[in-house]
């Protein structure tokens, strides 16, 4: 999976939980949850959907690495099979 494909997947997931927002307008370093007003319940659902789609295990301790778009893409790329 390329970085662009992964980013698209993230955008699609975010649109599902925050339909009125525009994830594509996120700057790479902006905090996703605060910027798009996503609560912890929706964010957990978003991660569950990512987990199902990508088959990557995301331990709770790593949630902090997923705060920004940039961080999320880097974290998931490193976890995905090459």
């Amino acid at each position: 999976m390329t970085e662009a494909e992964l980013q698209q997947l993230i955008f699609d997931g975010l649109r599902k939980i925050a339909p009125e927002s525009d994830p594509a307008s996120l700057r790479p370093d902006q905090k996703i949850r605060e910027t798009l007003d996503i609560d912890s319940f929706d964010f957990l659902n978003f991660l569950i959907a990512l987990d199902e789609r990508l088959r990557v295990e995301i331990p709770e301790a790593d949630y902090g690495k997923l705060n920004t778009l940039d961080g999320m893409v880097r974290y998931l790329l490193a976890k995905l099979p090459k």
């Binding site: 912890s40 319940f41 957990l44 991660l47 569950i48 987990d51 995301i58 709770e60 301790a61």
Partner: peptide, 17 residues
């Protein structure tokens, strides 16, 4: 909560709420 969630798959994790 962290210990409980470490035992669980992401689907079954608990929120602080």
């Amino acid at each position: 909560l962290e210990a409980e969630n470490a035992k669980r798959s992401i689907k079954d994790r608990l929120l602080p709420a």
